[in-house]
Amino acid sequence: MPEIFYWEAIRDALREEMLRDERVFVMGEDVAIYGGAYGATRGLYEEFGEERVKDTPISEAAIIGAAAGAAMCGLRPVAEIMYIDFITLGMDQLVNIVAKNRYMFGGKTTVPMVIRTQGGAGRGIAAHHSQSLETWFVHLPGVLIATPATPYDAKGLLKTAIRDDNPVLFIEHKMLYRTTGEVPEGDYALPLGQAKVTRPGSDVTVVSYSRMANRSLEAAEVVAAEGIDAEVIDLRSLRPLDIESVLESVKKTGHLVLVSEGYKNANALCEVAFRVNEFGFDYLDGPMLRVCAADVPVPMSPVLEEAAVPSVESIAGGIRQALAD
Protein backbone atom coordinates (compact mmCIF):
# COMPACT_ATOMS: atom_id res chain seq x y z
CA MET A 1 0.00 0.00 0.00
CA PRO A 2 1.36 3.44 -0.81
CA GLU A 3 2.35 5.74 2.04
CA ILE A 4 1.06 9.28 1.73
CA PHE A 5 0.94 12.39 3.87
CA TYR A 6 -2.13 13.26 5.98
CA TRP A 7 -2.59 16.43 3.92
CA GLU A 8 -2.51 14.39 0.74
CA ALA A 9 -5.13 12.03 2.10
CA ILE A 10 -7.41 15.01 2.71
CA ARG A 11 -6.68 16.49 -0.69
CA ASP A 12 -7.34 13.13 -2.35
CA ALA A 13 -10.65 12.71 -0.55
CA LEU A 14 -11.73 16.19 -1.66
CA ARG A 15 -10.59 15.59 -5.22
CA GLU A 16 -12.25 12.21 -5.56
CA GLU A 17 -15.50 13.45 -4.07
CA MET A 18 -15.48 16.49 -6.38
CA LEU A 19 -15.01 14.15 -9.33
CA ARG A 20 -17.74 11.84 -8.07
CA ASP A 21 -20.34 14.50 -7.29
CA GLU A 22 -20.57 17.83 -9.06
CA ARG A 23 -22.49 19.34 -6.14
CA VAL A 24 -19.34 19.22 -3.98
CA PHE A 25 -17.28 22.40 -3.85
CA VAL A 26 -14.62 23.93 -1.61
CA MET A 27 -14.64 27.42 -0.15
CA GLY A 28 -12.60 29.21 2.46
CA GLU A 29 -9.70 31.52 3.16
CA ASP A 30 -6.66 30.86 0.94
CA VAL A 31 -7.96 27.49 -0.25
CA ALA A 32 -7.60 28.20 -3.98
CA ILE A 33 -4.39 29.74 -5.33
CA TYR A 34 -2.47 29.26 -2.09
CA GLY A 35 -3.77 25.70 -1.65
CA GLY A 36 -4.81 26.03 1.98
CA ALA A 37 -2.81 27.30 4.96
CA TYR A 38 -1.65 23.71 5.57
CA GLY A 39 -1.72 22.68 1.94
CA ALA A 40 -4.70 20.37 2.14
CA THR A 41 -6.41 21.85 -0.95
CA ARG A 42 -3.25 22.00 -3.11
CA GLY A 43 -3.93 21.38 -6.77
CA LEU A 44 -7.70 21.53 -6.56
CA TYR A 45 -7.96 25.06 -7.91
CA GLU A 46 -5.77 24.11 -10.88
CA GLU A 47 -7.92 21.08 -11.60
CA PHE A 48 -11.42 22.37 -10.91
CA GLY A 49 -11.11 26.12 -11.34
CA GLU A 50 -12.51 28.95 -9.27
CA GLU A 51 -16.06 27.81 -9.96
CA ARG A 52 -15.60 24.98 -7.47
CA VAL A 53 -12.59 26.08 -5.42
CA LYS A 54 -13.33 29.48 -3.99
CA ASP A 55 -11.08 31.82 -2.11
CA THR A 56 -13.24 33.87 0.24
CA PRO A 57 -12.70 37.13 2.08
CA ILE A 58 -11.77 36.79 5.75
CA SER A 59 -15.41 36.40 6.75
CA GLU A 60 -16.00 33.30 8.85
CA ALA A 61 -19.68 34.01 9.50
CA ALA A 62 -20.30 34.41 5.78
CA ILE A 63 -18.28 31.28 4.96
CA ILE A 64 -20.21 29.06 7.35
CA GLY A 65 -23.60 30.71 6.78
CA ALA A 66 -23.26 30.76 3.00
CA ALA A 67 -22.24 27.11 3.07
CA ALA A 68 -25.41 26.41 5.04
CA GLY A 69 -27.57 28.31 2.56
CA ALA A 70 -25.94 26.59 -0.40
CA ALA A 71 -26.39 23.21 1.30
CA MET A 72 -30.08 23.86 1.89
CA CYS A 73 -30.37 24.73 -1.80
CA GLY A 74 -28.93 21.48 -3.06
CA LEU A 75 -25.13 21.79 -3.04
CA ARG A 76 -22.63 20.00 -0.80
CA PRO A 77 -20.13 22.60 0.36
CA VAL A 78 -16.87 21.84 2.09
CA ALA A 79 -16.02 25.06 3.90
CA GLU A 80 -12.60 25.52 5.43
CA ILE A 81 -12.09 27.49 8.63
CA MET A 82 -8.33 27.94 8.72
CA TYR A 83 -7.90 27.48 12.48
CA ILE A 84 -10.52 26.17 14.86
CA ASP A 85 -9.67 29.21 16.98
CA PHE A 86 -11.30 31.33 14.23
CA ILE A 87 -14.54 29.41 14.39
CA THR A 88 -15.64 31.80 17.13
CA LEU A 89 -16.23 34.32 14.32
CA GLY A 90 -18.74 32.03 12.67
CA MET A 91 -20.12 30.56 15.86
CA ASP A 92 -23.65 31.92 15.50
CA GLN A 93 -23.97 30.44 12.04
CA LEU A 94 -22.67 27.08 13.18
CA VAL A 95 -24.56 26.87 16.44
CA ASN A 96 -27.85 28.50 15.51
CA ILE A 97 -28.24 27.79 11.80
CA VAL A 98 -26.14 24.82 10.70
CA ALA A 99 -26.83 22.65 13.73
CA LYS A 100 -30.49 23.58 14.21
CA ASN A 101 -32.22 24.25 10.91
CA ARG A 102 -33.19 20.66 10.18
CA TYR A 103 -34.74 19.98 13.58
CA MET A 104 -36.19 23.46 14.02
CA PHE A 105 -37.87 23.26 10.62
CA GLY A 106 -39.55 19.97 11.45
CA GLY A 107 -37.12 17.67 9.66
CA LYS A 108 -38.09 19.11 6.30
CA THR A 109 -34.68 20.30 5.20
CA THR A 110 -31.13 19.02 5.27
CA VAL A 111 -27.87 20.91 5.67
CA PRO A 112 -25.35 18.57 4.04
CA MET A 113 -22.08 20.40 4.54
CA VAL A 114 -18.63 19.85 5.97
CA ILE A 115 -16.63 22.40 7.91
CA ARG A 116 -12.98 21.40 7.68
CA THR A 117 -10.81 23.00 10.29
CA GLN A 118 -7.72 22.14 12.30
CA GLY A 119 -6.60 22.56 15.87
CA GLY A 120 -3.92 21.61 18.30
CA ALA A 121 -0.64 22.84 19.72
CA GLY A 122 2.92 22.19 18.60
CA ARG A 123 4.04 25.04 16.42
CA GLY A 124 4.68 27.75 18.97
CA ILE A 125 1.93 29.92 17.55
CA ALA A 126 0.28 30.57 20.88
CA ALA A 127 -3.17 31.05 22.25
CA HIS A 128 -5.10 32.09 19.11
CA HIS A 129 -3.75 29.37 16.82
CA SER A 130 -3.28 26.29 18.99
CA GLN A 131 -6.48 25.37 20.75
CA SER A 132 -8.39 22.12 20.68
CA LEU A 133 -11.99 23.30 20.91
CA GLU A 134 -13.89 20.16 19.87
CA THR A 135 -15.46 19.94 23.31
CA TRP A 136 -17.65 22.98 22.58
CA PHE A 137 -19.28 21.16 19.71
CA VAL A 138 -19.65 17.84 21.47
CA HIS A 139 -22.12 19.76 23.61
CA LEU A 140 -24.16 20.77 20.56
CA PRO A 141 -26.89 18.58 19.09
CA GLY A 142 -27.16 18.68 15.31
CA VAL A 143 -23.56 18.36 14.12
CA LEU A 144 -21.33 15.31 13.76
CA ILE A 145 -17.65 15.55 14.67
CA ALA A 146 -14.76 13.66 13.08
CA THR A 147 -11.22 13.81 14.49
CA PRO A 148 -8.90 11.66 12.35
CA ALA A 149 -5.41 10.76 13.60
CA THR A 150 -4.00 9.04 10.50
CA PRO A 151 -3.97 9.56 6.72
CA TYR A 152 -6.07 6.41 6.27
CA ASP A 153 -8.76 7.66 8.66
CA ALA A 154 -8.56 11.21 7.32
CA LYS A 155 -9.37 10.12 3.79
CA GLY A 156 -12.03 7.58 4.66
CA LEU A 157 -13.79 9.78 7.19
CA LEU A 158 -13.73 12.88 5.00
CA LYS A 159 -15.41 10.94 2.20
CA THR A 160 -18.12 9.84 4.58
CA ALA A 161 -18.49 13.36 5.93
CA ILE A 162 -18.99 14.77 2.44
CA ARG A 163 -21.53 12.08 1.54
CA ASP A 164 -23.42 12.36 4.83
CA ASP A 165 -26.60 14.45 4.77
CA ASN A 166 -25.75 15.95 8.16
CA PRO A 167 -23.42 18.83 8.86
CA VAL A 168 -20.05 17.46 9.86
CA LEU A 169 -17.33 19.33 11.70
CA PHE A 170 -14.12 17.73 10.45
CA ILE A 171 -11.28 18.59 12.80
CA GLU A 172 -7.76 17.94 11.57
CA HIS A 173 -4.58 18.46 13.58
CA LYS A 174 -1.90 20.86 12.40
CA MET A 175 0.94 18.57 13.57
CA LEU A 176 -0.40 15.64 11.56
CA TYR A 177 -0.34 17.13 8.04
CA ARG A 178 3.27 16.05 7.52
CA THR A 179 2.82 12.59 9.03
CA THR A 180 2.54 9.64 6.69
CA GLY A 181 0.61 6.42 6.66
CA GLU A 182 -0.59 3.68 4.39
CA VAL A 183 -3.63 4.52 2.33
CA PRO A 184 -5.13 2.16 -0.23
CA GLU A 185 -5.54 3.46 -3.73
CA GLY A 186 -9.07 3.99 -4.90
CA ASP A 187 -12.33 4.64 -3.18
CA TYR A 188 -13.17 3.71 0.40
CA ALA A 189 -15.23 5.37 3.10
CA LEU A 190 -15.13 4.83 6.85
CA PRO A 191 -18.22 5.12 9.04
CA LEU A 192 -18.50 7.88 11.59
CA GLY A 193 -18.95 6.55 15.10
CA GLN A 194 -16.70 3.54 14.83
CA ALA A 195 -13.66 3.58 17.09
CA LYS A 196 -10.52 1.63 16.27
CA VAL A 197 -8.47 -0.47 18.65
CA THR A 198 -5.01 0.62 17.58
CA ARG A 199 -3.19 -1.55 20.12
CA PRO A 200 -4.81 -4.51 21.81
CA GLY A 201 -3.98 -4.97 25.47
CA SER A 202 -5.33 -6.48 28.66
CA ASP A 203 -4.37 -4.30 31.63
CA VAL A 204 -5.80 -0.83 30.99
CA THR A 205 -7.85 0.96 28.33
CA VAL A 206 -6.52 4.24 26.94
CA VAL A 207 -9.09 6.24 24.96
CA SER A 208 -8.08 9.19 22.80
CA TYR A 209 -8.52 10.82 19.38
CA SER A 210 -6.62 12.99 16.89
CA ARG A 211 -2.92 13.56 17.56
CA MET A 212 -3.21 12.32 21.14
CA ALA A 213 -4.32 8.92 19.87
CA ASN A 214 -0.86 8.60 18.33
CA ARG A 215 0.85 9.83 21.48
CA SER A 216 -1.19 7.36 23.50
CA LEU A 217 0.18 4.58 21.32
CA GLU A 218 3.71 5.76 22.01
CA ALA A 219 2.94 5.92 25.72
CA ALA A 220 1.59 2.38 25.58
CA GLU A 221 4.94 1.22 24.23
CA VAL A 222 6.74 3.04 27.05
CA VAL A 223 4.70 1.28 29.74
CA ALA A 224 4.89 -2.02 27.84
CA ALA A 225 8.58 -2.03 28.68
CA GLU A 226 7.48 -1.93 32.33
CA GLY A 227 5.15 -4.88 31.91
CA ILE A 228 1.89 -2.93 31.47
CA ASP A 229 -0.22 -4.13 28.54
CA ALA A 230 -2.37 -1.16 27.52
CA GLU A 231 -5.21 -1.31 25.00
CA VAL A 232 -5.40 1.90 22.99
CA ILE A 233 -8.63 3.06 21.36
CA ASP A 234 -8.82 5.88 18.83
CA LEU A 235 -12.39 7.16 18.87
CA ARG A 236 -11.98 8.74 15.40
CA SER A 237 -15.24 10.65 15.86
CA LEU A 238 -16.63 12.34 18.95
CA ARG A 239 -20.23 12.36 17.69
CA PRO A 240 -21.40 9.73 17.10
CA LEU A 241 -19.46 8.37 20.01
CA ASP A 242 -18.61 4.68 19.89
CA ILE A 243 -19.12 3.99 23.57
CA GLU A 244 -19.67 0.28 22.88
CA SER A 245 -16.04 -0.23 21.89
CA VAL A 246 -14.90 1.56 25.03
CA LEU A 247 -17.20 -0.51 27.24
CA GLU A 248 -16.08 -3.73 25.63
CA SER A 249 -12.48 -2.84 26.33
CA VAL A 250 -13.06 -1.68 29.90
CA LYS A 251 -14.98 -4.88 30.58
CA LYS A 252 -11.74 -6.67 29.74
CA THR A 253 -9.21 -4.36 31.41
CA GLY A 254 -11.09 -2.82 34.34
CA HIS A 255 -9.21 0.48 34.03
CA LEU A 256 -9.73 3.57 31.89
CA VAL A 257 -7.46 6.49 31.02
CA LEU A 258 -8.80 9.30 28.82
CA VAL A 259 -6.37 11.42 26.81
CA SER A 260 -7.32 14.67 25.11
CA GLU A 261 -5.56 17.79 23.90
CA GLY A 262 -8.62 19.83 24.87
CA TYR A 263 -8.69 21.75 28.14
CA LYS A 264 -9.11 19.49 31.15
CA ASN A 265 -12.10 21.21 32.69
CA ALA A 266 -15.32 19.65 31.34
CA ASN A 267 -13.38 17.98 28.53
CA ALA A 268 -15.33 16.12 25.84
CA LEU A 269 -13.97 12.84 27.17
CA CYS A 270 -15.65 13.47 30.52
CA GLU A 271 -18.71 12.32 28.58
CA VAL A 272 -16.97 9.02 27.87
CA ALA A 273 -16.24 8.65 31.56
CA PHE A 274 -19.81 9.38 32.49
CA ARG A 275 -21.17 6.85 30.04
CA VAL A 276 -18.81 4.23 31.38
CA ASN A 277 -20.15 5.17 34.80
CA GLU A 278 -23.69 4.70 33.50
CA PHE A 279 -23.25 1.54 31.49
CA GLY A 280 -20.07 -0.09 32.72
CA PHE A 281 -19.58 0.88 36.37
CA ASP A 282 -19.28 -2.73 37.44
CA TYR A 283 -16.44 -3.32 34.99
CA LEU A 284 -14.21 -0.81 36.73
CA ASP A 285 -11.54 -1.96 39.12
CA GLY A 286 -10.31 1.55 39.89
CA PRO A 287 -11.09 5.22 39.34
CA MET A 288 -11.12 6.54 35.77
CA LEU A 289 -8.45 9.08 35.04
CA ARG A 290 -7.89 11.81 32.46
CA VAL A 291 -4.79 13.33 30.91
CA CYS A 292 -5.76 16.58 29.20
CA ALA A 293 -4.41 20.00 28.27
CA ALA A 294 -3.76 22.37 31.15
CA ASP A 295 -6.53 24.88 31.81
CA VAL A 296 -4.47 27.80 30.51
CA PRO A 297 -4.43 29.68 27.20
CA VAL A 298 -1.88 27.79 25.09
CA PRO A 299 1.45 29.61 25.66
CA MET A 300 3.95 30.34 22.90
CA SER A 301 7.27 29.30 24.43
CA PRO A 302 7.97 25.75 23.23
CA VAL A 303 8.81 24.71 26.77
CA LEU A 304 5.52 26.01 28.14
CA GLU A 305 3.55 24.83 25.14
CA GLU A 306 4.76 21.28 25.53
CA ALA A 307 4.02 21.44 29.25
CA ALA A 308 0.47 22.58 28.51
CA VAL A 309 -0.60 19.55 26.48
CA PRO A 310 -0.35 15.81 27.19
CA SER A 311 3.07 14.38 26.41
CA VAL A 312 4.04 10.75 25.90
CA GLU A 313 5.51 10.85 29.39
CA SER A 314 2.46 12.42 31.05
CA ILE A 315 0.18 9.89 29.32
CA ALA A 316 2.46 7.07 30.48
CA GLY A 317 2.27 8.59 33.96
CA GLY A 318 -1.50 8.55 33.76
CA ILE A 319 -1.51 4.90 32.77
CA ARG A 320 0.76 3.99 35.69
CA GLN A 321 -1.38 6.00 38.08
CA ALA A 322 -4.57 4.30 36.89
CA LEU A 323 -3.05 0.94 37.77
CA ALA A 324 -1.40 2.02 41.05
CA ASP A 325 -2.83 0.94 44.39
Binding site: A62, G65, A66, A68, G69, A70, C73, L75, P77, Q93
Partner: peptide, 13 residues
Protein backbone atom coordinates in the same frame (compact mmCIF):
# COMPACT_ATOMS: atom_id res chain seq x y z
CA UNK B 1 -25.29 34.71 5.22
CA UNK B 2 -27.78 31.93 4.51
CA UNK B 3 -29.50 34.00 1.80
CA UNK B 4 -26.07 34.76 0.39
CA UNK B 5 -25.34 31.04 0.23
CA UNK B 6 -28.66 30.42 -1.49
CA UNK B 7 -27.61 33.00 -4.06
CA UNK B 8 -24.27 31.21 -4.43
CA UNK B 9 -26.03 27.89 -5.03
CA UNK B 10 -28.29 29.46 -7.67
CA UNK B 11 -25.32 31.04 -9.38
CA UNK B 12 -23.31 27.80 -9.32
CA UNK B 13 -26.27 25.84 -10.65
Amino acid sequence: PVATGAGLALQMK
